[in-house]
Design a protein around this nucleic acid. Structure first.
Lengths: 113, 113
DNA sequence: AGAATAGTTTTCCATAAGGCTAAGTATCAC
DNA sequence: GTGATACTTAGCCTTATGGAAAACTATTCT
């Protein structure tokens, strides 16, 4: 899947910025409006909105506008691609560790002879 | 810790590039030389080396030069910062889910009266 | 209606990121 | 010691990224 890789690019890149990670952390405690989320940052609103849009595009958050306020919430699904990649990698080098362990044990058994 | 955040920036950014993720995946099957790692990519060596250096700087891999060949290996420690951040986030929104569940159950109990 | 609030759109700017070529330095293999 | 190998260094180029200011739109409050 070509698309899987692109999603990974997006998610990792999104999380590489401290402002965006802080937004994620904030939303972990519940949905909020953009202005509320922006309050802790010394940053112009348009700049902040770029982060919000990027987070939404990558599927890490979901936003909805009602009236003049846009409220944001975590989208747990966005983390799924990353989780699966990480699991894949772990399977790889844990598999290898197992083989290495098997090898080491085999050596030890050989020595014991 | 100010440094923790910088490490997170680095690790996430490092993993946001497909070439670098491929290198990580390759190294998951064991240590190799730079040239060997570079083989699958249609990219000049100096460009590829930038990725290697970045991965090393962020602590995701470890490299060592012996003779004219530099061999690379995974550094599991580099993943630790990311893992801990992810765990932190999960604790946050799982904690919240629990409270939400508790709230919902309380409502149901109230209705049952 | 008029003022304040909450975003939005547009344009611009400086730096970082990813890639290239050309040329240089050690090793290693004969 | 010559040639091939395996990187390294040094510039250079283009696009992406994070941020800003100014001006605009749509709601909501009084």
């Amino acid at each position: 899947m070509e698309n899987y890789s692109l999603q990974l690019n997006g998610v990792f890149q999104a999380l590489s910025d401290p402002t965006r990670r802080a937004v994620i952390a904030h939303l972990g405690r519940g949905p909020t409006s953009v202005t509320e989320l922006a309050r802790p940052f010394d940053m112009a609103l348009p700049s902040f909105m770029k982060h919000i849009r990027l987070l939404e595009e990558t599927g890490l958050i979901r936003t909805e506008k009602s009236g003049r306020v846009r409220s944001c919430a975590l989208e747990r699904g966005g983390f799924a691609v990353m989780d699966s990649w990480l699991a894949e990698q772990r399977a790889l080098w844990e598999g290898r560790t197992d083989r290495l362990e098997a090898f080491v044990m085999a050596e030890q058994r050989a020595e014991a002879k």
